[in-house]
Nucleic acid binder design. Structure first.
Lengths: 386, 386
DNA sequence: GACATTAGTTTATTCATCAAATCAATGACA
DNA sequence: TGTCATTGATTTGATGAATAAACTAATGTC
């Protein structure tokens, strides 16, 4: 039960001050006070505390033309560092970052066939990377991106690899002495998009891969449903008595609009061996009519999916993350014009810019938010290197 | 910007105390302190304030077998009264209630063809009813149930009557000097179900009438999307290139599962004049095979809708409110067994008990919550009379 | 009638906010 | 060069709400 107390007030205001400092990059005490509607005395006290904790630093004066020059405050971005590991079906990717998502370094390995030893694999992976030295807090959080359903920080259902029953979080936590956050990949993706790219209050992010995932932001917060199964949008039905889906349903969305299905249809047209996306792309750019037909199908099915998302969640913006939108970003305009319902309000449909980095960047955010206690993070500078 | 302050602490704790008193019907100061984890001193101070404001009364001692007998506290349910008016397409229903949803009185009139004068119609309706006398606060809130989309306490889109552009809330507020809350009918419905019947954290409530509405409770709160259009589930597509819907789409859910469509299909089978639900019901109970076929369709389409709701919102419970479930409540079991996806977690599918009173009772709750500042209301006793 | 037990109140303390005064720094201007 | 207006930041005292601990109140038991 969250009741009111002095500590609660301080917590709320401290987090707001931190949030204000981060989201404004550099800001003075006076400006924070004005922004939050708190008195300068309060802000001074809170800032002093944050400076003592080495979470905030003074970075010199701003250039104003009247009165005393303000002292600019900034997050001490090297106070510690965070790690996100995306456990993909084929590849495990690890990203180390400072506290604002800058100065990242990436390492990738193959996902082992047998995942029973996953905790040790992850420990070895992290220890093989160059970790920042001599920071006040060192490693302050690890996020794991999982292709599956998470409940209570544990994998409760993962169709592509067997992680259920293994307590990954605890294993890593006790070894690194830092909090470990498990999260669904589609959820991390939308958090990454919100934090680094599209700062809207309500976002739907569709990830089209072999299946289809959906991450939802509602009122600036991740919406995961009561046991983490919300946004299993790939298994909503868009065709009565439609194509059989392995899940047991007939006519699931991902049996139509997934990359796997569309390439499969393309292969059938070509009557050849399994076609890759790259082969499809080359053919499309060469003006191949079959490829055009497949792209039309993608637009048609995706517009149905987007219509259903609009009527279910009513977001401000829909982001589509897929190979199709990476190579043909203007396809989102076609999807938008394929929407037919007069019930829909005005909406933006955009291709993902972060593409396959959105999961890792989203994981970085989760760990940073967890460490700093900040609710609504907004970061800008991205600089990925291998 | 919500910042921390002394007043915020008191507000939070006062609302928690009120909530505890209401949801426990009668409870002592000591028990409240234990329940909330606050000290007895704090609770005593807050309760004294509430008694002074005539919102809480002492109702005698409880019978315990050891120590001093506790003084039981209760909400002063006659401190004021609230009104909900459901503006239906054909009928306007008004319900007056005390502050716990007991002691209600109902009045219904026909919806006027011309709704330009709606404010005066509502004022006349309210003033023609017997309002409680000599209460400390008198009328403390009016909720209007609207068959349409609400944004900023105004009707932004209503397909069945023309209310856009009329500032109903302001007109009533200035006349009765009480806050007026506009809300979508499907949203009120789910609030009513949650408060009076099914106390779950995550609820989906499907209202099947001529169209199909959906009210969603997420984490104990109504989920309405950023401009009130979430839950327009009737216009999600369940059939590619399906039946034409007036909204512009093809294959909308409500073109299949709505009462209007199913009766229309039944009429076509019978090759007669338009069949009513009553005619359908009589035939079904007489063993008519066409009626059985229609009911099978209802189960089939509804199970698709429920599947999509589960994968979109992941609620704890799905409530179905329709003529079909009123007369054949066990049909929800058939719908449940028609679910095929192994992605779905365990779920309860139940028929609405409140039926057509859910909107009015939900509206009563909205007004009570607004007046008392209570977040999570739980009420029990229902006693409707005409 | 002493005592254990529970309910509720009183009192002193703590702590975070606020308002107002004060100190600090800086450019404008005479 | 020195005064002043202006803005930034800190200090000080007051306020209010929570807490802990002591105290009063009420009641049944032995």
């Amino acid at each position: 039960m969250v009741t009111g107390s002095k500590e609660l007030i301080r917590d709320i205001n401290t987090n707001l001050v931190l949030e204000t400092i981060i989201n404004n990059t550099a800001i003075s005490r006076a400006a924070i006070a004005k922004h939050l509607g708190l008195t300068k005395a309060t802000i001074s006290a809170i800032v002093q505390e944050l400076i003592n904790k080495k979470l905030v630093i003074e970075i010199g004066s701003d250039d104003t033309n009247l009165g005393r020059k303000p002292i600019l405050l900034s997050l001490h971005k090297k106070a510690g560092f965070v790690i996100c590991i995306d456990i993909g079906v084929d590849t495990i990717s690890a990203l180390i970052s400072d506290l604002i998502g800058e100065d990242c370094s990436l390492k990738q390995i193959k996902t082992p066939k047998n995942t029973s030893n996953i905790v040790n694999v992850l420990i070895d992976l992290i220890e093989s990377m160059k970790l920042p030295k001599d920071t006040p807090y060192d490693l302050v959080g690890i996020t794991l991106g999982i292709h599956g359903v998470i409940a209570n920080n544990q994998v409760s259902f993962a169709p592509y690899y067997n992680l259920s029953g293994i307590n990954i979080a605890e294993g890593l936590e006790s070894h690194f002495n830092a909090p470990v956050y498990l999260e669904n990949e589609a959820n991390l993706s939308v958090i990454g998009e919100k934090t680094f790219q599209y700062d809207y209050a309500n976002i739907a992010n569709i990830s089209v891969h072999s299946g289809i995932g959906l991450g939802i932001i509602v009122n600036h917060q991740l919406y995961a449903g009561y046991n983490g199964r919300a946004g299993e949008f790939g298994h909503t039905i868009i065709e009565i008595d439609g194509k059989q889906c392995p899940c047991g349903n007939k006519g699931c969305f991902e049996q139509y609009a997934s990359e796997r299905n569309l390439l499969h249809e393309y292969t059938k047209m070509k009557n050849s061996e399994e076609q890759s996306f790259e082969q499809f792309r080359v053919a499309y750019e060469a003006g191949d009519l079959d490829a055009y037909k497949i792209m039309d199908d993608f637009v048609k099915y995706m517009s149905i999916g987007v219509n259903n998302i609009l009527n279910a969640y009513n977001p401000d913006i829909v982001i589509i993350n897929s190979s199709f939108t990476i190579f043909f970003p203007h396809i989102t305009e076609k999807i938008e014009s394929a929407l037919t319902s007069r019930m829909n309000s005005y909406i933006r449909i955009v291709p993902s810019v972060l593409q396959d980095t959105s999961i890792l960047l989203g994981g970085i955010c989760v760990a940073i938010k967890g460490f700093l206690g900040v609710d609504n993070l907004k970061l800008n500078h991205i600089n990925l290197r291998g």
